[in-house]
Amino acid sequence: MKQQSLFVYALKHPSSREEAFARLVSEYKERLYWHIRKIVLDHDDSNDVVQNTFIKVHLNIENFKENSTLYTWMYRIATNEALNFINSKAKKMGLQNQEWVEAVADGLVADSYFDGDKAALRLQKEVARLPEKQRIVFNMKYFDGMNYDTISEILDTSVGALKASYHHAVKKIKTNLTDEDTKE
């Protein structure tokens, strides 16, 4: 935490701010991009959201109180920005957020920046069918391999509820995939 405090000081101080921010971008650009990408799914949309996230971080670094880690704080901004993006896109199309996400997931088959096989595509479609918040928990646990304590800190939710949510999501996905296999 002491090392973080020094870094945060560098981020806030005008003389070192630019260099420290460049380091911050270099360090976190990919992690935040992938976190966002799994929420909004499309590359161009993720590109917009990750840039907005860093702009927000830059504009508001003075407001970072170090009640949490810098990493957690930025993940929260990224999560909010991604959900806000989906909300505004869905609203423009007259859709519910989940309907929007499912439509994007259906379009992955033709997405030039997605090369997953049939199984990967089916998994993405099933993940898209999860309720929004359950989907975020699933992404962080299954795809990012985060432990519950970290997810708990980022989402400010109890570990117990996260575990229940994740297990429920896994069960739902398994059931749906099995049902589809049976139909085929």
Partner: peptide, 9 residues
Amino acid sequence: TNYNAYGFQ
């Protein structure tokens, strides 16, 4: 950790 791509490029 970019193994996380899972089909996304």
